[in-house]
Design a protein around this nucleic acid. Structure first.
Length: 278
DNA sequence: AAAGGTGTTTATCG
DNA sequence: TCGATAAACACCTT
């Protein structure tokens, strides 16, 4: 659910609300949320007294820049942040609370407990393995067609699996993968190494365009996503295929179908997105 | 009412 | 090294 556009919207909200705030204490109610080598105890101790200077993002990861640490937070499926006052009732599925010096609390909620926190020394954050391997951000300046074409030619996997791979391009999840493939008129089952130069360009441009428009719209709210300010996204009304099973294709009117590709629910128009021979 | 679907990443298998 | 699969969880739908 939180893919790049949702994480980016959350990042902006966090920056509005908590930059400059000082963490005086941390409570962790689900220890597995804190990844090794940090124990919950070390995690809390490291954060006490640290100022939240700014929140950055790489792919679907949030990066809180503190005095001595970069706190990396991944929301996985259903992670959310709220900023509360101390008297506010604690919602179900609250797993981490950051107590701030001004009396407010930054709370992390996650129904499925899949989200993770990692602490990195502030000057070593570039060395974090997932960041080192991660593909470019899906914007024109970084996501180069030549590199993308090389990646496609090297892989026999189906194209949908490839664009979901964070090491190819960062931040694309199930929703925006389906939307991008639809916009580029490519069948999700097409093997990556059978995609020609023209189709590769369409796909690269579609990913940049779809993600960009979704960021502008504050992301998509499918079931539960809300940003830090408690607001829903607006992009769900612009979705052409995701969650539109049985509805007419906005381009040709053929009913949208749902199949399974790379173990993921996949929505596409069988008329507009025909499989092409290599 | 048990079973299956939901999506992201990492670990593990062949 | 690559690709496929399972596991980490809770809730909702069938």
């Amino acid at each position: 659910m939180p893919e790049l556009p949702e994480v980016e919207t959350i990042r902006k909200g966090l920056n509005q609300l908590i930059t400059g705030a000082v963490i005086i204490d941390v409570a962790v109610f689900w220890d597995r949320m804190i990844t090794p080598p940090f124990s919950t105890g070390k995690f809390k101790k490291a954060l006490r007294g640290e100022t939240i200077h700014t929140v950055e993002r790489r792919g679907k990861y949030l990066i809180f820049l503190l005095d001595h640490w970069a706190m990396v937070s991944h929301l996985r499926m259903e992670g959310k942040y709220e900023v509360n006052h101390s008297g506010d009732p604690i919602q179900k599925h609250t797993h981490v609370i950051f107590y701030l010096a001004d009396g407010r609390q930054l709370r992390y909620l996650d129904v499925r407990k899949f989200g993770r926190f990692t602490l990195l020394p502030i000057d070593k954050r570039e060395e974090y393995e997932p960041f080192k391997k991660m593909g470019p951000e899906p914007v024109a300046d970084f996501f180069k067609l030549n590199e993308f074409r090389k990646d496609l030619s090297k892989s026999s996997r189906v194209i949908k699996a490839v664009i979901l791979d964070q090491n190819i391009v960062a931040g694309v999840g199930n929703i925006y993968a389906d939307e991008s493939l639809f916009q580029a008129k490519i069948n999700p089952l097409q093997p990556a190494n059978t995609i020609g130069p023209a189709a590769a360009k369409r796909l690269r441009d579609a990913i940049i365009d779809v993600i960009g428009r979704a960021v502008e719209a504050g992301g998509s709210t499918i079931r539960t996503y809300k940003n830090t300010l408690g607001e829903a996204g607006k992009f769900q009304v612009s979705l052409a295929v995701y969650g539109q099973t049985g509805k007419p294709c906005p381009r040709c009117g053929h009913p949208i179908e749902k199949i399974r590709v790379a173990q993921r629910g996949t929505h596409y128009c069988p008329h507009c997105q025909k499989m092409k021979k290599a």
